[in-house]
Write a protein that binds this DNA or RNA. Sequence first.
DNA 1: GCTGGTTAAGGAACCGGTTCCACAAAAGAA
DNA 2: TTCTTTTGTGGAACCGGTTCCTTAACCAGC
Lengths: 332, 332
Amino acid sequence: MKTIADIAKIAGVAKSTVSRYLNGGSVSEETKKKIELVIEETGYSPNAFAQSLKAKKTNIIGTIIPRLDSYATSRTLMGIDERLRELNYHMLVSNTDQDLTREIENIYTLAKQKVAGIILLATEVTDAHLKAFQEIDIPVLLVGQQHDNVYSLVHDDETAGYAIGKYIAQRGHKKIAFLGVSEYDVAVGLKRKKGFAQAVSEHAVDVEARFFETTFSMSDAAERAGQLFDEFSPSAVVCATDNLAIGAMKAAYQKKLHVPTDVSITGFGGYEVTAMMNPSLTTVHIHFTEAGHTAASHIAKLVKGEDVPKLTYSRFDLILRESVDIRTDHLL
Amino acid sequence: MKTIADIAKIAGVAKSTVSRYLNGGSVSEETKKKIELVIEETGYSPNAFAQSLKAKKTNIIGTIIPRLDSYATSRTLMGIDERLRELNYHMLVSNTDQDLTREIENIYTLAKQKVAGIILLATEVTDAHLKAFQEIDIPVLLVGQQHDNVYSLVHDDETAGYAIGKYIAQRGHKKIAFLGVSEYDVAVGLKRKKGFAQAVSEHAVDVEARFFETTFSMSDAAERAGQLFDEFSPSAVVCATDNLAIGAMKAAYQKKLHVPTDVSITGFGGYEVTAMMNPSLTTVHIHFTEAGHTAASHIAKLVKGEDVPKLTYSRFDLILRESVDIRTDHLL
DNA sequence: GCTGGTTAAGGAACCGGTTCCACAAAAGAA
DNA sequence: TTCTTTTGTGGAACCGGTTCCTTAACCAGC
């Protein structure tokens, strides 16, 4: 492997000149030609460490994720990776397995590795997080959660929750179950629920809405939904993620409830598989990949010292499919 | 941030001594104590670049994947990341979007970044791959595909294909469709099909097996399966991945074919969602996460110059669920 | 023709570690 | 006691870049 000194020697110049050539300093046309030729011939490419040693920074963006086995995460990562490649960065992935302690640890480890920036697919922002962000002195971008002190990219969960709540309410449902997750996850657990509740209160009268909680796991959701059908027998179940909705559909099937005639079910996310289900699932499609693109662009700008909006919203669409029915019972 | 020189000065020794202390050279008990204390107090941790500059190597393992939006990939990555963390390595992920050119490019780019080793979730091994492996002089581990010249970890697709073929054949099916993917993907496209075909020929008589091809996409699979039902009307459809099976189930539903009484369907992979479908899907569960663990352990050993088996098989289980029925038509 | 400003290029120091070498002191062998 | 051998330590070079400082050359203006 050739070094900058080799190139300099072959081209008959000093290594500082080669360095200047590479980094756009003032070099005469003549010398430029010479150096260019040598680099071409030798296939020289600078050693990233030596550069980083001096610059105290890499071209690596660290991405911290709570879990890898999630559609939302995968898609977001795809988007991030795609855009980062274009911008000449690399993506270092660190999975925390939903362990908050490990999340904090990872922030420091990545900082030690001198990544240029950190994208955090967060579920919660604690004081420990804020402390870490301050200490490391590296740009951080939050995705999926919002905090005033940090650059954030969120999926506008509240508005999306409102949209689906309104849709269900307008379809005449009067007994609606909301199957969600812990409010510790502000975006998924709190905001979606809040938007939904708001919509229902505004767009329907005489509605009984009940709120149930489970984990992110399909099978837990199926179990919880099973109980919920017995306890409450709703005409619609609004789920906080598509996985929960898949679980709920399973439960309905096991209880011999037909979807959508006996019970309507909606999801949240827009996972590919929701189109394939029987019946296909009405859901909110969140543009995760696009959000990933934006996240990558933003962190790159932050790294370069440019400014980006403190808070950005990603897009969503309501996807209307077969799993929701209109209820006219109350009109009889 | 403190440097080794600072530590040396504070402890009143030479930096070479501190370096020796850190790397296990000969240092007296007394000096050890002194240095230990200073490091403790200052929270010193060595600069990774300076180390890498000299060592010409990082503690980063590059992982090249064809796509991120796949259950198999996610799970494998989870396993890899989990084990790598334990072994004190980091995982750098590079997505190629199933573009072979980009795969080759990535190998060189990672090599330039001086990753310690490369794990390649391969779909195909071309001469360009082999050439790249040779040139970069970095340990490479292939996952999912096998090649004699490279360390490989494969999912024993042929045996698994055989297992499911045998199972279907023994259930009395006589018209069996195999819905697969291009043979360019040796593991998924070729081996699974081959194992299946072998089993059918050994365990059934008077069988008509037909082979159909589609892409990895659920919706393409649904479309292809729809045609296949018209052309061939099989009593069983064996699919090369769970996603294809999900598509096939959708198609069956659209054609008003009941699963499993009209047609049996099987998958391959063991994705979580297959348990949630109606009916639940009979499939082969491949232990992707476990395979990821093994892959990480192996690449770490290779990096350290230790030896591992040239070829390792990961485990699989047949998961019997509701989507397969017994056929007794031919006994009438 | 002399002074001053601009541009191109070389030399050396520096980033923060590791490692080789030399040397002194302590330990073991003769 | 004297002569190796071992052990611990410091100093310096090195890894491969970047950047600051100097100097030389060139051109313009007075």
